[in-house]
Simulated scan of single mutants.
Amino acid sequence: MKIMKYTTIKDIAKELDISKSTVSRALSGDSNVSKETREKVVALANKMGYKRNDIAANLRMQQSKTVGIIVPEMVTPFFMYVIMSAQKVLDEQGFKVIITQSHEDPQAESYNLKLMENYRVDGIIMSVCHSDINLKEYFRLQEEGIPIVFFDRVPSKIHACKVIVNDYVKSMLMMEHLIRSGRKRILHLAGPARIPNTEERKKAYKDSLAKFKIPFDPELLIEGENERSEGERVIRDFLRKKIPFDAIFSFGETLSIGALSYIQSQGIKVPEEIAICGFSGTYLSTIVTPQLTAIQQPFEKMGRVSAEQIIKKINDPESSCETIILDAEIVIRQST
């Protein structure tokens, strides 16, 4: 089998019997190289299918012009929206993008971090799948001069640029909406404990109940994976055990959709008998009936700001690290 070989400056120089530096200068349009030589070099380069090696050129300037993006999953639209927005900004600034997902697995996340390091990325934008497990890796990469911008799910025990929404405040406001609409037995479908946002939303849930002097019932707080099947399972178990509840506040919209699906399959009316709401608020919240009330995160702005922050740190490693808190919007729909 014939192995493909990329044409190099060396190949062109050998063919024309001139130096590699002359070929390089001719290809860059250097006027110190004669017009005749420039034309010969360009013509032969086109004929031989020469393509400029951007990676080698960038590394000579101590930059790869590449940014890595690591997300926990790409099943829900939220992370895809953030990636697309960040990539648009990075493309405009001449950066290439490497995208990986950890599949909610810290070991896979660690592998992805090493992959980014091996590809000599200039910086990393990421959302973590666990609060603590890979902290040493984050610190090590920072010490080696690779800046990291964390978004949405951010570790608290590291000084770095972070782009978030105020989970606690928005969760409090959503709970207040449910309580003021007459709901007293609110089920909280919490995310897994390993995710930083889970604790903020749980705290808001408990504090809201306390504010309105509603007793906290441990039976009504369930931790689980942010998956549709989990929402279905929890509601199925609650209905079988005949544990009363009149509203659901969920960690994410896939949980909300799973809960809604099973509730409706049992002939229970939403929102008349049970109200449902949760975080994220992508288009998924609008393609079900009734449409879901949601804390809509500004995913496009989150991607843009994260990209701007990593570019700032790449261009000026000594620039300050900020925690940027974006405003999320509570969108009231038919489900509450």
Rank of each mutant, 00 (worst) to 15 (best):
D327F: 03
N46W: 13
R38N: 06
I235P: 01
V121T: 04
Q142K: 14
I274F: 02
S306Y: 11
K170M: 13
I330A: 04
N166Y: 12
Q142C: 02
L187A: 10
D246E: 00
E273A: 08
T66G: 03
I18L: 05
K312H: 10
K20A: 13
T323E: 14
S265P: 03
E308K: 15
K213M: 04
A307H: 13
S31P: 12
P72R: 15
R153K: 12
R180E: 12
I69M: 06
Y119K: 14
M74H: 09
T336N: 13
A26K: 09
I179H: 03
K211C: 04
S110V: 02
E117T: 10
R38Q: 15
Q291L: 07
K211D: 04
I164C: 06
T293F: 08
I83H: 11
V305F: 08
V270W: 09
I125Y: 09
G182K: 01
T293V: 13
G224K: 05
K211F: 13
C277H: 07
N134W: 14
L187I: 10
Q62M: 01
C277E: 10
K5T: 15
A307L: 06
T323K: 14
K114N: 12
L189E: 06
I248D: 06
P215S: 14
E232H: 04
A247F: 06
V169H: 12
N118V: 03
K96D: 14
D237S: 10
S261M: 09
Q142V: 02
L16S: 11
F95L: 01
I12Q: 06
G94H: 14
F279G: 04
V163D: 02
F151P: 00
H159I: 15
S24C: 07
F212E: 00
H159S: 12
T22M: 13
I324D: 07
Y138R: 01
D152S: 14
A328G: 04
Q101T: 15
